[in-house]
Nucleic acid binder design. Structure first.
Lengths: 225, 225
DNA sequence: CTATACTGTTACCTTGTGGTTACCATGCTA
DNA sequence: TAGCATGGTAACCACAAGGTAACAGTATAG
């Protein structure tokens, strides 16, 4: 992941860059508005960046102008950042197209989280779960096994996502019951049927099973061993 | 736009609801975690909401548990909100799946902006959408399939753009109903008719269908596989 | 003002879901 | 060994959800 940091305070910038690097985020750095605009010109409106952190108060002008000028081609999401707690500033930033806002002083871990969220939102970084030949795309709600696309019923999808989230940790029967039938009286057979059906859909023919039962502990999503 | 507010402070809740209503945002309200869970059960994991504002400290438990329990089926984005400025709280919330975080006391206009952002209302509408032989030009409002130009009714155009924005992620029936018939009591048949008509217009003869139904999950714009 | 198209409504059909029952396999315990 | 608990499978079927066509009232355009 590559982001652009526009910030005039050299010390803060250095700290931020160090922290983000440690999180696995690469950072390009511009200390002034002028430098940021140069980069914009070179990179076709920040095309290459997953996100931009923009300090509001820069020595050579207000950062809002950057958003407003370049907004047309802006592909990268912008996180605004300023010392001012003034509400009008915030609203102006959002109005100009910022997607998030953080006030100084901020904690670096929080900044990192927000940057990752921003970058993920736009790149539609679909959360995907893979296990052997099983492939689950959570946002698009697609399940594939090898090159075969699998259609799951609502209940089966719910169960699969629950298992995938916890995998390879087993999920107890009680948890599953509560999760899928939150209110109604639950019959143990419903649970058994659901599991059988999901198993059947996930491994046709003689593909290896991916749902393992641990007696008394529940059910886990892992490769057969 | 419809959101869910989970907040135990009745005064603050009333103020928030008033303000959001004035912004054109409808608000459902839950004062306790228990009530929120009831709503979750009724509405198939908050399917009908565009966003959820969740107060961290509730009388009957910590709101994080709601996220963790129900996360599997969570369609709506969550904005966390709390009096604590404790960094750990923030990070825990983000880790649990929150997409934004705001600390009390907050300014209502800022909350409104963040909610709108979350709900995706500010989605950047791509100029052109393509899928197989289907070609949609949003700004010119033209739809083509191969070399045949297609004319859509207003409703059908609305639906197509909604689907295209989210593609290939499926859009739930609840979302569609709210988007196309925002106020009126909606009849399920209207939805069925609209879908049939759009399908019919988009694929005459024996062109492959581009609108896939995922049982219980909604409808998605993707190539038939 | 007339013709056309849009949209809400009804009726009917198809499909798949999911609760249910019945039966079998395994492993533990008395 | 019988008895029981846990877990797996298959088949049945009521019923809800989805799909289609036809009709009518109303809006819209020419």
């Amino acid at each position: 992941m590559l982001i652009l940091l526009v910030e005039d305070d050299a010390v803060l910038a250095a700290q931020t860059i160090d922290f983000l690097n440690a999180e696995g985020i690469e950072v390009d750095y511009a200390a002034t508005l002028g430098r940021a605009k140069e980069i914009a010109a070179q990179t076709a409106s920040f095309d290459k960046y997953d996100a931009i952190i923009l300090d509001m108060s820069l020595p050579d002008g207000n950062a809002l102008s950057l958003l407003q000028q370049s907004l047309a081609g802006f592909d990268a999401p912008v996180l605004f950042c300023t010392a001012a707690t003034d509400l009008d500033d915030k609203l102006a930033a959002f109005a100009a197209g910022a997607l998030d806002y953080i006030t100084k002083p901020f904690a670096l871990p929080e900044l990192a989280v927000r940057v990752k969220l921003l970058a993920g939102k736009v790149s539609k970084c679909n959360q995907v779960f893979e296990l052997g030949s099983l492939h689950v795309d959570f946002s698009a709600k697609i399940v594939r096994r090898g090159n075969r696309t699998i259609v799951l019923s609502p209940q089966q999808w719910q169960l699969l996502t629950l298992l995938a989230e916890q995998a390879p940790t087993p999920v107890s029967k009680a948890q599953i019951l509560r999760h899928i039938w939150p209110d109604s009286e639950v019959n143990n057979n419903m649970y058994k049927s659901l599991l059988t059906r999901l198993r059947h859909n996930l491994s046709r023919d003689n593909e290896p099973s991916v749902i393992q039962t641990l007696k008394g502990q529940g059910v886990a999503l892992r490769e057969s061993s």
